[in-house]
Amino acid sequence: MIAIFRTTQRHRGLSILACACLLLIVPFVIRGNDYLLRIAINILLYSVLATSLNIINGYSGQFNIGQAGFYCIGAYTAAILATRCGVGFWIALPVSGLIASASSVLLGIPTARLRGIFLAICTLGFSEIVRLTVLNWIEFTRGPMGIPGIPFPTVLGYEISTNFGFYFLILAIAAVALFVCFRVLNSRIGRAWIAIREDELAAKSMGIPTTRYKIYNLAFGTFWAGVAGCFYAYLSSYVSADSFTLDEGFAILCMVLVGGPGSLVGPIVGAFFLVVLPEMFRFLAEYRLVIFGLAILVTMHVRPQGIAGGGVFAALAPEAAGEGEKGAAS
């Protein structure tokens, strides 16, 4: 496994190309099979969600376990915009992300100086408050009835109404999300976030306004959760508070932890494993969250940095790793 990651590290351009080809070919192979397509869509959707959480937990070290709350905000924003305001998919998508970001700023301003379990509990409580608000604010969200009848999205004049189409839509979203995250993480902003994770006091002493950057980080990460929420709303054409429980938040967290926090590949690997695993053992479907909990425990005992972690280091500075080899050779 590690050897595979080493190799992919070395030939990054090539391996990205290979992955892209695979991801583009797969849907044609399984085109007739809605069940498999649905799994593929789920993997990509959870990859975006896990990546969004990884930006926060893995890179800036803020222990957020309430990502489902932001996912929920994104989904409801899209649902309300689409059904009440007749807004199109392409506008709903960024707006959902921005609303999720904005709410994370509201949470972040009071909680920026908390760490560890204190922050964790606050994010958890926030996620529950979002869900309770959705349930109780009936005029706006229709409460427990949920919002049905979200139309199919239209892309470049084509209406997307099949799983085949949704697959390519979420593939595009995931690709953009990863691309943007990669570039931001490999800039001054990403370095500041990692510095905060490693040692907040030292980061402060190096001139990084840590409070502002932590909120910034939260807003950036939750933006993608909001975007994922928007996609989910269009995919299922119906949203209800039941889809955004704390368990959903734990599932996302579990993907990050098992896959490898602090690496871009990690959460995707985690999403793949944890979507596929319960599907492979259908009789275990009921045990989905038990499996997730056990996966966290096994990971911590066997490979605490996660499947693709450790990882952390090499993946943070892939360009540097290449230069380093050159440097050593000269």
Binding site: D247, F250, L289, V290, G293, L294, A295, I296, L297
Partner: peptide, 8 residues
Amino acid sequence: TTIGVSTV
């Protein structure tokens, strides 16, 4: 780890 146990 305690989140893991709690989920299980």
